[in-house]
Write a protein that binds this DNA or RNA. Structure first.
Length: 405
DNA sequence: TCTGGGGTCCTAGGACCC
DNA sequence: TCTGGGGTCCTAGGACCC
C-alpha cells in the first residue's frame, strides 16, 4: 500500500497574528494587523477579520489603517515569531525527517514513509494539524497531492484551518478553473503578459503551444508555466538546501544624503552582516551594495573577490568602493543595503595574504562580548555618535563602548 | 495608497579562455 | 585579413515568494 498523494504542504494560518493571540487573548475575534508602524511600513500579516476589509500582506500600513481603522496594529516581534517557528518545525519533524522549510511558517513534507502507520494521506494530514494545534496552539492548513506544486495550491484552497487532498489523476481538473495568478511563480508581470495572449485561467494555458509561451515569457519560465498547467512537477522534497546569500538593508523614515551619513550607515550594515556571517561560520566572496532613491529607482553594485572575506572591516572596505561606483552623489536615498554572496565555509583553508590583519580576532572578540552581554555591549564609536539615525532602536547602550576604529 | 526585509532564480551581455 | 564555437565567470537588473 502506497499513498498516491505522498506530498504534504503545511501552511500556518495568519501566522504572526495567531502567535500574538496566544499571549494576548483579547486579540481573538477582532481584526489584527502585524505591520511596520513607521511612516514607510507595510503589512506583514493580517487576520482574517482584517482581510475582509481588504487588508493584505505587502500593503502600505497607511492604506491598511484607512481600510480597517478598527483593527489593532502591532509591530512585528521577530523573536516571538522565530521561537514559535521552531516549535512548529519540531512538531513537523516528529512525523518525518523529510521536511523542507519554505519559510518560517510553511513547509513541504514527504509523508510517503508513513504509509505503514496511517491508513491514508488525509489521516496523516489531519493528525499533523491536530498535533500543531495541541503542541503550539496554532492553526494550520494542509494540502496533499502527488506533487509539491499541487500540494501547495491545495493548502491555499484549504485555508483557513482546513485540509484538501487533490487525488492523483484529478490535478488538471483541479487546476483548470483557477486564475493564472494562482500559479506558483506567476506574479503581476507574468500575469499581465499572459492576459495579452488571452490567457486568464490555468486551463487556458493548455490551449497555447509551449513554443508561444517560451517566446513570450522566456525559455525557462515559459516551459515551467506550461509544465505546471499540465500538472507536471517532478520536484522532490529537499531536506538540506544551503543558503546562497545573506543581506542586511534598511529603509529610512526620512531619506538620508551626503557622504558622511551614507558611510556611517554602510558601516552599521557591514557590522551586522559580519556578525551574521560569523554566527553561521561562513565567509563571502562577493559583496554587493544596494541603493534605492527617493523615486524608488534601485541600483546595485557588486564585486567578486579573489578570496573570501568575513570581517566587518573587510566588508566595509569593499562596500565603500561599491558605494563610490554607484555614484550616489548628493541624491536623497531611502534604502541602503549590503549583501554577501558566493558563500563559503569559513573553516575552509584560505590563503594568507602578506597584509593579513588582526581584524578577524577583533570581530571574534566583539562577538564573544555580544553573546555574553548583549548586542549593544560593544560597538564602534562612529556608530554610537550617530545613533539617532538608527530607526529601529530606541535603547541606549548600557556599557561604555570600545572604540573599534 | 505609495510601496519592508529577507531570500531565490533567470536573463542578457561582456570578458576571457581554448 | 577576417573571423569559429563553446564554456565559464561576472555584473546588473528584474520577477517572484513569504
Amino acid at each position: 500500500v502506497v499513498f498516491a498523494e505522498p506530498i504534504a504542504h503545511v501552511d500556518m494560518d495568519a501566522f504572526f497574528v495567531e502567535v500574538e493571540r496566544l499571549r494576548r487573548p483579547e486579540l481573538i475575534g477582532v481584526p489584527v494587523v502585524v505591520a511596520g508602524l513607521g511612516k514607510r511600513g507595510v503589512v506583514s500579516c493580517a487576520s482574517y477579520e482584517a482581510r475582509r476589509s481588504g487588508v493584505d500582506s505587502g500593503m502600505p500600513t497607511g492604506r491598511a489603517r484607512r481600510l480597517c481603522p478598527d483593527a489593532r496594529f502591532l509591530a512585528p516581534d521577530h523573536e516571538a515569531f522565530s521561537s514559535a517557528s521552531d516549535r512548529v518545525f519540531a512538531v513537523l519533524r516528529s512525523f518525518t525527517p523529510k521536511v523542507e522549510p519554505v519559510s518560517v511558517d510553511e513547509a513541504f513534507l514527504d509523508i510517503g514513509g508513513l504509509r505503514l502507520r496511517y491508513p491514508s494521506a488525509s489521516v496523516v494530514g489531519e493528525t499533523i494539524r491536530a498535533a500543531l494545534r495541541e503542541h503550539t496552539g496554532l492553526p494550520a492548513s494542509v494540502g496533499l497531492a502527488a506533487s509539491k506544486f499541487i500540494a501547495k495550491m491545495a493548502s491555499r484552497e484549504a485555508k483557513p484551518d482546513g485540509l484538501l487532498l487533490v487525488p492523483a489523476g484529478a490535478e488538471v481538473e483541479f487546476l483548470r478553473p483557477l486564475p493564472v495568478r494562482a500559479l506558483w511563480g506567476v506574479g503581476e508581470s507574468t500575469c499581465a503578459r499572459l492576459e495579452e495572449l488571452g490567457v486568464k485561467s490555468i486551463g487556458d494555458i493548455t490551449a497555447v503551444p509551449q513554443a508561444t509561451l517560451k517566446r513570450r515569457l522566456g525559455v525557462a519560465l515559459g516551459a515551467h508555466v506550461w509544465e505546471l498547467a499540465h500538472a507536471r512537477d517532478e520536484r522532490r522534497v529537499e531536506t538540506d538546501s544551503e543558503r546562497r546569500s545573506l543581506s542586511v538593508e534598511n529603509t529610512y523614515e526620512q531619506d538620508i544624503s551626503g557622504k558622511e551619513a551614507l558611510e556611517t550607515e554602510l558601516l552599521r550594515h557591514a557590522d551586522r552582516l559580519a556578525s551574521r556571517l560569523r554566527r553561521s561560520a561562513e565567509s563571502a566572496r562577493t559583496v554587493s551594495v544596494k541603493v534605492r532613491y527617493a523615486d524608488f529607482t534601485t541600483v546595485t553594485r557588486s564585486e567578486t573577490l579573489a578570496a573570501p572575506i568575513e570581517t566587518s572591516h573587510e566588508i566595509f572596505e569593499v562596500a565603500l568602493r561599491l558605494l563610490e561606483r554607484a555614484g550616489v552623489g548628493d541624491r536623497p536615498v531611502r534604502l541602503l543595503g549590503i549583501g554577501a554572496g558566493a558563500l563559503e565555509d569559513a573553516a575552509a583553508p584560505r590563503q594568507l595574504g602578506l597584509d593579513q590583519t588582526p581584524w578577524e580576532d577583533l570581530d571574534a572578540a566583539v562577538e564573544r562580548v555580544r553573546s555574553r552581554y548583549g548586542r549593544k555591549a560593544v560597538g564602534r564609536a562612529r556608530l554610537l555618535a550617530s545613533a539617532k539615525l538608527q530607526d529601529e532602536s530606541s535603547q541606549e547602550m548600557t556599557e561604555a563602548p570600545e572604540d573599534l576604529g
